[in-house]
Lab assay of single mutants.
Amino acid sequence: SKTSNTIRVFLPNKQRTVVNVRNGMSLHDCLMKALKVRG
């Protein structure tokens, strides 16, 4: 089974995003990807 960790990230202006960290990806990469999608 694939394991994925879901991390809630609290952003300024009362924004919130959820990042799924996959195996083999660093938290930083996942964060940058999530913020790019939002931006």
Rank of each mutant, 00 (worst) to 15 (best):
D29R: 05
N5V: 07
S4T: 15
N13C: 15
K2N: 13
N20Y: 13
V37G: 03
R22N: 15
L11M: 08
V19L: 11
S26I: 15
N23Y: 12
R8P: 02
T17N: 02
K36I: 11
K33I: 01
G39D: 14
T3N: 07
M32A: 09
R16G: 06
K33N: 03
I7T: 03
T6M: 11
G39V: 04
H28D: 11
T17F: 05
Q15H: 01
K14N: 15
P12R: 01
S4I: 08
T17R: 05
M25I: 10
R38S: 02
S4D: 15
C30W: 00
N5H: 12
K33Q: 04
K14S: 05
T17S: 10
V9A: 12
N13H: 06
C30I: 07
D29H: 14
K14T: 07
S26T: 15
V37W: 07
K14I: 07
T6P: 06
M25T: 13
L27M: 13
M25L: 10
H28P: 01
N23D: 12
S1C: 12
N20T: 08
K36R: 10
N5S: 15
A34G: 08
V37L: 10
D29Y: 13
S1N: 14
S1G: 12
H28S: 03
L35P: 00
M32K: 08
D29G: 13
G24R: 12
S26R: 08
M25E: 03
R8C: 07
G24Y: 05
L35A: 05
L11P: 00
S4G: 10
N20D: 06
G24V: 14
G39E: 06
N13D: 10
K2V: 03
A34T: 04
S4V: 05
Q15E: 15
L27V: 15
R22L: 14
V19E: 05
C30G: 08
S1A: 05
R16C: 06
N20I: 13
T6K: 07
K14W: 05
N20K: 14
I7D: 05
V19F: 13
N5Y: 08
V19T: 11
K36T: 08
N20H: 12
R38Y: 05
K14R: 09
R38H: 00
G39A: 10
R38L: 02
N5G: 05
H28R: 12
G24S: 14
R8H: 06
V21S: 05
K33R: 09
K36Q: 13
L35Q: 01
S26G: 09
I7M: 09
V18F: 03
K33G: 02
L31A: 05
L31M: 06
R38C: 00
N5I: 07
S1P: 14
Q15R: 01
G39R: 07
V9G: 01
P12T: 03
V21M: 05
L35V: 06
F10H: 14
M25R: 12
T3I: 11
L35R: 01
K2G: 15
R22D: 03
C30Y: 03
I7N: 00
N5T: 09
V18T: 14
S1L: 11
D29V: 09
V18G: 02
T6S: 10
V21G: 14
Q15P: 01
S1I: 07
R16H: 12
T3P: 14
L11V: 04
M32T: 12
K14Q: 06
R22C: 11
K36E: 06
D29N: 13
T17P: 00
R22P: 14
L27K: 03
R16S: 06
K33M: 05
T17A: 06
V21F: 05
N13Y: 08
G24D: 07
L31T: 05
S4N: 12
I7P: 03
R8L: 11
I7V: 11
V19A: 10
G39C: 10
H28C: 14
R22S: 07
P12L: 01
I7S: 01
G24C: 13
R38G: 00
N13G: 03
K33T: 02
N23K: 09
K33E: 01
L31V: 07
M32L: 13
T3A: 15
S1R: 13
L31P: 00
A34E: 02
V9M: 02
H28N: 07
T6R: 08
A34V: 03
P12S: 01
V18E: 03
K14E: 08
I7L: 11
D29E: 06
V9T: 10
M32R: 05
R22F: 03
N5K: 09
M25V: 12
V18D: 01
S1H: 14
S1T: 13
R22H: 12
V21E: 00
V18A: 09
S26N: 10
K2Q: 15
V18L: 04
C30S: 11
K36D: 05
V21L: 09
V9L: 02
L27R: 00
C30F: 04
N5D: 09
T17I: 01
H28Q: 14
L35M: 11
M25K: 13
V37A: 08
R8G: 02
T3S: 09
S4C: 11
F10V: 02
K36S: 14
V21A: 10
L31R: 00
N13I: 06
Q15K: 03
K33L: 05
P12M: 05
V21I: 05
R38P: 02
V37M: 13
F10Y: 08
R22G: 09
F10S: 12
N23H: 09
A34S: 10
K2E: 09
M32I: 09
N23C: 15
V19D: 00
R16P: 00
F10P: 05
N13K: 08
G24A: 11
S1Q: 15
S26D: 02
I7F: 08
N23I: 07
N23T: 10
R8S: 06
M32V: 11
S26H: 05
T6L: 07
P12Q: 02
V37E: 01
F10T: 05
K14M: 09
K2T: 08
V19I: 12
R16L: 06
K2R: 10
A34P: 07
L11R: 01
S4R: 14
N13T: 15
L31Q: 00
F10C: 06
T6V: 15
V19G: 01
H28L: 09
K33D: 03
V9E: 00
L27Q: 00
M32S: 05
N13S: 11
V18I: 13
D29A: 12
S26C: 13
L11Q: 00
N23S: 11
Q15L: 02
K2M: 11
L27P: 00
N20E: 05
F10I: 02
K36N: 15
P12A: 02
V9K: 05
K36M: 15
R38Q: 05
F10L: 06
G39S: 13
C30R: 02
T6A: 08
N20S: 08
H28Y: 10
